[in-house]
Every structure is written in C-alpha cells, then in structure tokens.
C-alpha cells in the first residue's frame, strides 16, 4: 500500500485523507503488512524522495547565488571605491569638491576661527563613552563633538550629500552661501550646517556624513 507522494504537502486533496488513514492502518498492523508496504519500506521511500528533493533545492539555491552575486558591485566598480587626492593647493578657508563613489566629497581647510566656532557648540560627552551625550547646550539635533568628526582639526572631510533629501549643499567655495553658521547651506529646503558639518537649522535630520579616510602623506588623503 503506497502513500502517493501527492498526498504530502499543501496541495493535498481531500481524497488523500482516506489514503493516508489506510496507510497508517497498514503501518500499525504489522501482521498484515505486505513486504513492500511495510513501515520500513514506506519511510525509506519517503526518505529517498525527501533527500532527492532537498538535494534539488540545494542545487537550485547554489545556482541562484551567482545570479544574485552578479548584481553586486563588480571588480572594476570596487577598484574605484577609494580615491586619493592631493590637497596641497587648498588655502585656509577654502574647500574643494571631488567625486568619490559617484557622490560629491567636500574637503575643506578650516581657519582657526572656524575650528574654534565648531568647538564652541560641542556637546559634553562622557569621556569613557564618547557616544553618550551628557549635555547639549547648543541644542544640536545630531549631537557630536567636533573632535569626533575630524582626524586633523585643520581638515574637514565630508560627504557632500544633504541628509534631508540628497541635494548637494553649497559652501565649499568661499564665494558660495555658507549660511548662518559659516558651514554649508543647502538651497533645496534650507538646511544649514556649521563649520563641523553638523546640522543646526532646517529639515535635515543628521550631520553631514564623514567617510572613512586616511592621510597617506602630509598633502594626500585617501578616501574609502
């Protein structure tokens, strides 16, 4: 008495109940079990089908993976993931915009006044855990100390994408609008950032992002 495999799974139809019941009856009654339909034969068969189906599923999954993986950035795209820039020509108070991973990157050389202004608005943080903010006198929406956002105080490296809806803020060149806080001003909806790139006014929720970077020499920085 074989239990048809179509009686397994979500597509089982009503008639299968009788079949399964009969199968169970036979499995229980060893004395009447024909050699072929013994419980051992039945479960061995189901095991074989399960093994084959599982192997098939594993095969399908291993074939799907390369397809999905091909959508990830390819090697030539990854090779351009980091950019090196020589900033030797940038004057204090000036900034340059370069392209990094398809996005604008701000590199600004800050004057001592700009650095001081940034530090003035610093929140007080727990020295043991800099992410824990104890006091925020300037009312920063996204409280961060200036020191946490730069490696060398003179050099501000930021991703030039407004955290509101993605426009490019103005302010890299001293001829552009820098807003009330002397940092950056986003013309789309009026978000204003300070000299540390922190959001001070306007709809943006977060500070301008700081990308991963290292100084490879006194005049070169590698971003990404």
């Amino acid at each position: 008495m074989k239990v048809s495999s179509r009686c397994l799974g979500p597509f089982a139809v009503g008639a299968c109940e009788a079949t399964i019941a009969k199968g169970m009856y036979y499995m229980a009654d060893q004395a009447h079990a024909a050699p072929e339909s013994g419980s051992a034969g039945g479960t061995r068969r189901e095991f074989l089908y399960l093994m084959t189906a599982s192997a098939g599923a594993f095969g399908v999954a291993s074939v799907v993976w390369p397809f999905v993986s091909s959508l990830n950035p390819s090697k030539d795209v990854l090779a351009l993931a980091s950019t090196e820039y020589d900033f030797g020509a940038v004057q204090p108070g000036e900034g340059v915009t370069i392209k990094w991973q398809g996005k604008p990157l701000f590199i600004r050389r800050r004057t001592p006044e700009e650095i001081a202004k940034a530090k003035e608005a610093d929140p007080t943080v727990d020295p043991k855990d800099p992410t824990k903010v104890i006091a925020n006198p300037a009312g920063l929406r996204d409280p961060q100390t200036d020191a946490a956002r730069v490696q060398k105080a003179e050099w501000l490296v930021l991703v030039g994408v407004c955290t509101h809806l993605g426009c490019t803020p103005q302010g890299e060149k001293s001829s552009e609008m820098r807003g009330e806080f002397g940092g950056y001003y986003c013309p789309c909806h009026g978000s204003q950032y300070d000299t540390s790139g922190r959001i001070r006014k306007g709809p943006a929720p977060l500070n301008l992002a700081v990308p991963p970077y290292t100084f490879t020499s006194d005049t070169k920085v590698k971003v990404g």
Binding site: P66, F67, S69, S70, S74, K75, D76
Partner: peptide
C-alpha cells in the same frame, strides 16, 4: 569582456 573579468560570476553567466 567586462562581464567575463569584472562582474561577479560573470564568466559563469
């Protein structure tokens, strides 16, 4: 050739 060299599993596709 970019598919063959740079795309992940591009050679396989």
């Amino acid at each position: 050739e970019r598919i063959m060299r740079d795309v992940n599993y591009g050679w396989l596709l």
